[in-house]
């Protein structure tokens, strides 16, 4: 097995999960389960692609993805924070809406299928083993993850966010606006999820294909539970999932596994997550206000 190629593939697979998982941790720590994650990643991938295709600049595409994600987070906020709709339903509905809207726009702009190749982000340190990665991967590992960890642990916003997620009544009594804090969490989280999706179009593929996220959002939801809502374990579990996925790709081209169906190999990481949840997913302590809308009485 080629270890250098394995590491490179791991970093590519891990990046969208890294951003999405951190985004989901931030929203869930504020007490909101965001099942809109799959749709937000999808819309981020599409929004990033469409702006890059028209401007030629992946950086503007990334910015568009951030804005898309913030809007998606705002929509979830309207539904689950202001109105207090059931979070499972609001999330699935948001995912269906965003995927439908992206595919509608794609069809409108490109007819049957688009084969437009756009400008992409370049690899940094090309040819250097281990260090060869995309800027977004490096930013995610070296900037976004530590920043999110520091934000949740040591800042006023992080403290308010966790207070609102654990005990909104107490937070409200202490003068914290539950609504505003949860909106902030959803908007930041949504932006990160959308960047995760945009990584697929702007760095990996350079184009948009249907079903591009392929359940990665659901994987991120599982990784959040596996990591018990903590940032560094989440980074580790995203990398772990990606190693399994990359190993699967590497194994599939070896003679021993050549006769094993490709689809079975692709399904392996999903099954690994379910097994991991079965082993590590018991006796968890969910955020205190998880799934509960807050209303002053």
């Amino acid at each position: 097995m080629n270890v250098v190629a394995l590491i490179a593939a791991t970093l590519v697979t891990a990046t969208p999960l890294l951003y999405a998982t951190i985004g989901e941790i931030i929203t869930e720590r504020s007490g909101i389960l965001n099942l809109g994650i799959e749709g937000t990643m999808y819309a981020g991938a599409f929004g990033g692609f469409i702006v890059t295709a028209n401007t030629g600049s992946p950086l503007l595409g990334l910015l568009a993805a951030v804005v898309t994600g913030m809007l998606a987070g705002g929509l979830m906020g309207l539904l689950t924070v202001t109105l207090g709709v059931n979070q499972h339903v609001a999330g699935i509905g948001t995912t269906l809406l965003l995927i439908g809207a992206s595919e509608f726009s794609n069809r409108l702009l490109f007819g049957g299928g688009s084969l437009t190749q756009t400008a992409k982000f370049a690899l940094l340190f090309t040819g250097v083993p281990v260090l060869e990665m995309y800027l977004l991967t490096m930013l995610g590992l070296a900037v976004v993850a530590p920043l999110a960890w520091w934000l949740l642990r040591s800042t006023g916003l992080g403290l308010r966010l966790r207070a609102v997620g654990e005990n909104p009544e107490a937070a409200d009594a202490a003068g914290i606006s539950v609504e505003r804090t949860r909106y902030v969490a959803l908007v930041i989280g949504g932006a990160l999820m959308a960047v995760g999706g945009a990584f697929l179009t702007l760095a990996v593929l350079g184009t948009f294909t249907l079903n591009i996220t392929n359940g990665r959002g659901w994987v991120a939801i599982a990784l959040v539970i596996f990591a018990r809502w903590r940032i560094w374990p989440a980074v580790a579990s995203a990398l772990l999932f990606a190693v399994v996925d990359a190993a699967q790709l590497q194994l599939a081209i070896t003679p021993t596994f050549a006769h094993v169906p490709r689809e079975l190999m692709i399904a392996l990481p999903y099954l690994a997550v379910i097994i991991a949840l079965a082993v590590a997913g018991r006796g968890l302590r969910y955020p205190g206000a998880y799934l509960k809308p807050y209303r002053r009485t």
Binding site: N214, W218, A222
Partner: peptide, 13 residues
């Protein structure tokens, strides 16, 4: 006691 939302979702793909 493993959350069924996540496991049922993951089995779809």
């Amino acid at each position: 006691g493993v959350d069924e939302v996540v496991t049922t979702l993951l089995l779809n793909p």
